[in-house]
Design a protein around this nucleic acid. Sequence first.
DNA 1: AGCACGCCGACT
DNA 2: GTCGGCGTGCTC
Length: 831
Amino acid sequence: LAKDLFTEVTTHFAEVAIPIPVNKFFTYRIPMAISDQIKIGQRVIVPFGKKKILTGVIISIHQQPPQEYEAKYILEILDSYEIMYDQQIRLYQWIADYYLCSFGEVLNAALPAGLKLSSESIVQLNPVFDPENTPHSFSEKEHLIITHLTKGTLNYTEVSRLLDTKHIYALIKSLLLKEAIVLLEEVQSKYKPKTQKRIRLQEKYQSRIALEEIFASVATRERQEEILLRYLQQVPVFNQPQLNIHGISKSSLMDGLSDSGLKSLIKKNVLEEFEIVIPRIDLSQTTSSYPILLSEKQTLVRNEIINHFEKTSTVLLQGVTGSGKTEIYIDLIKRALEGGSQVLYLLPEIALTTQIVQRLAKMVGHVAGVYHSKFSDNERVEVWNNVLLGKVRFVIGVRSSIFLPFDNLGLVIVDEEHDGSYKQHDPAPRYHARDTALVLAQHHHAKVLLGSATPSLESYFHAINGRYGFCQLTERYGEAPLPEIVFANLSEEKKRKLAKGEFSSVLLNEIQNSLKSQEQVILFQNRRGHSPMVQCQDCQWIPHCIHCDVSLTYHQYKHALVCHYCGYREEMPHQCPTCSSKRILTLGYGTEKLEEELKIHFPETQIQRMDLDTTRSKTGYDSIMEAFEQGQTNILVGTQMVTKGLDFDRVNLVGIFDADRMLHFPDFRSHERAFQLMVQVSGRAGRRAKKGRVVIQTNQPDHPIFAYVVNHDVKGFMDHELPDRQSYFYPPFTRLISIMLKHYDKKIVNDSAQQLAEAISRQIKGIRLIGPGEPIVNKVRNEYLMNILLKIPRDRGHLADIKMILRELADRLIQHGTFRNVKVVFDVDPM
DNA sequence: AGCACGCCGACT
DNA sequence: GTCGGCGTGCTC
């Protein structure tokens, strides 16, 4: 005791992460009063800047006072418990380091908005201010504000609405100076628990005698009598008095009645109204587990996966559409959950449908937390808390669910692992959820199962090289045959005048036949690639870049052919260099135009379009799906969205409208993506015993990729594509880092990009630097863009060092006077 | 990111 | 002359 008394009290400091794009932590002083409660991972409220109050997360606690400034005090601890574990801090730090962004940016993406707080300025009348007795005079606007403030406080938005101007700062300042108002900062919790109003009988009336008295007194009050009778009908207060404690929800009691009768009863202290908090996510779902019966083949593969997990933490499962991957997932999920650990099931956004979630949760037999961007933020906070508190151990979610506060993950499943939407493109953190999941799992000593019918080249490469375990399911479940694929040679048809516009007679006839036999049609056209493509109409020549394995894109206002990746440019030829034909055309067709023309060809038919625009609302996707499932729609035209989701029994024809556009998209991944999409969409045709049909419209049916699509030959495709990637130094043989520079002055971006590129070349050896060059869209929101692409060989090593140098060089560039305002955006592993 | 401070043009 | 435009720099 004596020792304690005389020991000098040490001041503790905390490193606090704040959700802003500044790559450092902020040091705050921990007030004595709370120093024994403060924990890493906890949310705290801190003052930030002149007046702002923000929420931060405690990253570490130490005794090092900062040298160059006086640390401010933490104002308050927000929750009694940590909202995340060390595991999350470690993962977020990894993401910030690997993807070259700030911890704050990761935190910003990780926390549901309901857990992020920021202060709001409240304008209040100064208590000492007397409008009758003031030496100051006020403008009309100031008067207006003062009048309103006598009735209550205002926030900035309200003030600005009141004055109908955005510029209120000067006015506020003037009012402050005249001591008419005071400002205060208020932090509001954004998370609002969902509540329900309930009604119950007051305890003293829970006897027959008391009730009889009441009924006698309300005999002339019909409304009140009815309410009481209704209540007693639904709550048996005599037989089961304990039920009265919970009462009945107000809305169900008062259904169709007016409130006045109830109000009187409450006033008389017969009934009472109370409020309860109800969870948005129902945790009391039946958790009876369905027995999963695996086929012989599935059992074999399941065992194989488990064996692989003994040796490697990651396994790639390649299974054709309809081969029954899901059952294997479920079997593994159940095992992991029964072992007591948490399970994360990742899906691409468009595949996470209500139906899929319900089916999964039902078969797994555990409560599933669903983490989806279309859910409200309050719901997301509840999922977060349920995971944190261990109420939910099974999460089905989109890419951002890797941020959830797991502390005991046993298994991560990345379904459709090849899907590009796992990579966040903009804004930072530009992370890849599949790759991050591997690191997440490593931190937890968990296993990862990557699943796809058409694996990414990267995952396949690692699988055949033994870094991942590799399992295959090559047969469709129940022996449903693979669809028959026919080609419609569009250029041939055009020559023979058979095609109608961009529709081949083959496709039109097939659609006609399907419609005649009451079958449904899916027509697939990937919307991506607004920029037109150039092609010779006679020999199908397509211009390619001399530095990269991509086709060149026609730029209208420059009248030139440009490479998306390195900026290489050549003049648009007047005649084809191969066959001297002058019929060099730009091609282009979008989903909407397709829908329009289909309506002309099939006027009697119900045609529905499904793309980003028609599914933006929460129910858009579901209602289109429902209409299609019930047969109200005959033809579904859509983008990649139609490649995923549930199976439709009546779909027997799938049309791929423009295979060439996919194949020649100016991107080194275009072959891979085209192969994946064509195989996936073909899988939609003929899911039961009947053999489906797929029509592929193309100008070059002999393109090698098609042969692999027809035979569903993943290995063949990979053997074809991998050498190409190797010779052009693309992934999986290299790692890419794209550096985008932005500035509103074209000369400044060009110069800065040149200078940065030179500095990188000088400082970092053993890598390839492409560019700097202009990206296709070289001006966005009045900013000019320049791109530098780094290709880093996989065996180069010291990736972390390279990234550190890149950060430094970028910082140094910006310190250079003229380049002060150049924005440098890193995209690691760009897609 | 937000927000304050500071230096310039178009209006009474 | 001022009001209000936005460019610039900082936040523990």
